[in-house]
Lab assay of single mutants.
Amino acid sequence: MEQGTVKWFNAEKGSGFIERENGDDVFVHFSAIQGDGFKSLDEGQAVTFDVEEGQRGPQAANVQKA
């Protein structure tokens, strides 16, 4: 798993970007967020995640709040 920080997340659209510790920013969709309840992330929040190849390039998967 990688570690990173939420660069921004739009709760209305359900997507945003995570700033990786090593590498380019990666797209995140709300469906990749693990946990119960409303799936959203806050700017500056620390997260851990896997990276998968999506239709438009790398994207975060199995996102967990650190």
Rank of each mutant, 00 (worst) to 15 (best):
F38T: 06
T5R: 14
D25Y: 14
F9L: 04
W8C: 13
G37D: 06
E21H: 11
S31A: 06
G57N: 05
G35F: 08
V63E: 02
Q55H: 13
G4R: 01
F38R: 06
Q3F: 14
Q34R: 08
M1G: 12
V51K: 04
F9N: 03
N22R: 10
D42V: 15
D42M: 15
R20C: 07
G14I: 03
S31Y: 03
A61N: 08
A46M: 12
F17H: 03
R20K: 06
D50R: 12
K13G: 07
A32Q: 08
V26F: 04
E2Q: 14
P58W: 09
Q45C: 09
A61I: 14
E19V: 14
R56V: 08
D42Y: 15
F38C: 12
D25H: 11
P58M: 11
A61L: 10
Q55S: 12
F9P: 06
Q3I: 13
R56T: 08
G16K: 00
G35E: 10
N62D: 03
E12Y: 12
A61G: 08
S31Q: 08
T48Q: 09
D50G: 07
Q64M: 10
D24E: 12
D24Y: 10
I18F: 00
N62S: 05
L41Y: 01
I18H: 00
N62Y: 01
K65T: 10
E21A: 13
V63C: 03
G23F: 05
N62L: 05
D36P: 12
D25F: 14
D36Q: 11
V51F: 06
Q55I: 14
R56N: 12
G16N: 01
N62E: 02
F17N: 00
H29Y: 04
I33C: 06
F27M: 01
D25G: 07
G57S: 05
G16P: 01
G54R: 08
G57Q: 02
S31L: 07
E52W: 12
G37N: 07
D42I: 15
V51P: 04
G44K: 05
D24K: 13
V6C: 07
E53G: 07
S31R: 09
G4C: 06
F30W: 14
R56P: 07
A11W: 10
F17I: 10
A61F: 10
D42C: 15
D36F: 11
S31V: 04
A61Q: 10
E19A: 14
V63N: 00
K13T: 14
G16Y: 01
V63Q: 01
K39R: 11
W8Q: 05
Q45K: 03
I18N: 01
E19I: 14
T5S: 07
D42L: 15
I33D: 04
F17V: 09
K39P: 07
K13Y: 09
V26P: 02
G35R: 00
Q55Y: 13
G44W: 03
E43A: 15
G57F: 08
Q3C: 15
G23Q: 07
E2V: 12
H29W: 04
W8P: 00
Q34W: 10
S15C: 15
E53S: 10
G37M: 05
E19N: 08
D25K: 09
